[in-house]
Design a protein around this nucleic acid. Structure first.
Lengths: 103, 103
DNA sequence: AATACCGGTACCCTTTTTGTAGTTAGTACT
DNA sequence: AGTACTAACTACAAAAAGGGTACCGGTATT
């Protein structure tokens, strides 16, 4: 098909979308934005997310450099997740979602 | 769990996220932003999306009031999809994704 | 001794997405 | 007349993602 007006979606947009286009990701970023949270705190904030899915998302977001996982050596040991600088940049997208949602 | 610092994610944010958190949605909005496009033009712009999935997304986005579907009575008849006002508001989120992706 | 917190995993089932093909109706070409 | 092409989808089976519930091993509280 000859198509003058439809450019292909840029690869870097597809890559960023790949992160956001998975269920619960936006909620997880929303919840993380006020500081470090632990697994069960995220679970509570996000709502009905199954723990398996939350664990999956956290691995993906960590691999993408958006979150860091930090084990705190206490009894019982805790794990905290916080946004990286990159995560704070991605959070600007979530801010845009919030503005859209509020209108 | 008592959790002072983790507020639940607001319902309206969950609802907006529900649209974006499905595969290809961001690409479809990106492609739609420059004007009306037809089914096969969207398909080409988005890339490897299966036509069935594109058709599904278009129905969802139309139901959400983000896109309008317009049948053009020509031979062969065409169908155009364009953003509504609401769609243009949602496109601000996609703009934020592009800014994130470009950095 | 029993219960609860902690960060997950295991299991099994349903929903979503994918890949490939085909359909319908109307032109256009040979 | 027959073949091919276009546009906008739809059909079907299979694979991937997501969901609900239960449970683990270790520590701490009651």
């Amino acid at each position: 098909m000859r198509c003058r007006r439809c450019e292909p979606v840029p690869e870097e947009v597809r890559r960023a979308a790949g992160l956001l286009e998975r269920r619960w990701t936006i909620s997880i970023l929303w919840a993380s934005s006020e500081g470090a949270l632990r697994f069960n705190e995220l679970k509570q904030a996000v709502g009905e997310i199954p723990p398996r899915t939350l664990a999956q998302r956290l691995v993906e977001l960590e691999e993408a450099g958006v979150l860091v996982r930090q084990v705190i050596d206490a009894r019982p040991p805790r794990v905290e997740y916080r946004l990286t600088d990159e995560g704070r940049r991605l959070k600007l997208v979530v801010d845009a979602v919030v503005r859209y949602a509020d209108a």
